[in-house]
Computed example of a mutant assay.
Amino acid sequence: MEIEPSVVFTIPLFGGIPVTMTVVVEWIIMAVLIIASLIVTKGWKLVPEGTQTVVEVAIDSFNKFVENSLGNHWKEYAPYLGTVALFLIVANTIGIFGFPPPTKDLSTTSALAIMSITTVIIASIRARGIKGFAKSFFKSPIDFFIQMLDLFTRPLSLAARLFGNILAATTIMELISKAVPIVVPAVFSLYFDLFDGFLQMLVFVFLTMLYIEEAIE
């Protein structure tokens, strides 16, 4: 199994910009999500019915989930959390369709973690102001080191946890497929490709929401 993503093609700019399989799959996921959202929301009515009802119920349930943690601030962060959740659901389970999950690439999980910790910092600044945010680093000498450590360990933890679990699940499925290539892989795929992928999405989104909650309190 290759851990390093293969280069699909090179953009002939600035001496050549390599585009890896991870990036290509991410583009596919984004295109699928954009097209699906346009199709699903086309022709929506004031009185929902059919697919619109299902989508609205799902969105409303997710919004209430975020509201329970963030209170009155939920509207500011639910769109980001929902977008990350949708991306991760597809990214973590896309192996079912024969594509390598982009979340088994540390660069992808690191980018998501940096986005999340940036959102947390912005949430803290919006809640406390720039002065209040800066003061939180200097309550005492030990607080400065703790706060600085948090800024590095939290994104590192988010990135490493997601990367490690998806890489492990992908590796196990490949080993099972080679050892017993007929029926057993399909059974294990229900856990390693579907359940574990969904679970890792929940963990990532929940921890991000928890960090935002701490930042705005």
Rank of each mutant, 00 (worst) to 15 (best):
V54P: 06
F188G: 01
N92M: 06
A215Y: 02
R161W: 12
E213R: 11
T170D: 11
I216V: 09
I28T: 15
V47Q: 15
A58W: 10
L202G: 08
G197T: 00
S116Q: 00
V24Q: 08
P12W: 13
K42S: 15
D143E: 06
A186W: 04
M201W: 00
R154N: 02
V25A: 05
I3E: 13
T41Q: 07
G43E: 09
M209I: 01
T20I: 10
N68G: 13
T118L: 03
F145K: 03
M173Y: 04
Y80H: 13
F65H: 11
M115I: 10
V54G: 06
T108K: 05
N68D: 09
G82N: 05
D143Y: 00
K178C: 00
I142P: 03
I130Y: 12
I117T: 05
I17Q: 13
T20E: 07
I117S: 02
M21R: 10
F99I: 05
I172Y: 01
L38C: 14
N68R: 14
T20H: 12
V203P: 05
L149C: 06
S189D: 04
V25S: 11
A31E: 14
P79H: 04
A179V: 08
T10E: 15
I3Y: 10
D105H: 00
I17M: 14
P48W: 06
D60F: 12
K139M: 09
M209R: 08
N68V: 08
V40L: 15
L151C: 09
T53G: 05
V23W: 14
P12S: 13
L13E: 12
K45Y: 09
D143K: 03
E26R: 14
F145E: 01
L46W: 09
S61Y: 15
A160Q: 06
S189T: 00
P5I: 06
I29R: 09
D196L: 08
S116V: 02
L158V: 00
E4Q: 12
V8S: 12
L149G: 14
V203T: 09
G197L: 01
L202K: 11
I121D: 01
K42P: 13
I96S: 02
L202V: 11
I114W: 05
G95F: 09
M21I: 10
T10Y: 14
T51R: 10
I130W: 11
I122T: 06
F206V: 04
G129T: 07
N165P: 04
I96G: 02
F145I: 04
S177V: 06
V180W: 10
V19L: 12
P141Q: 04
G82L: 08
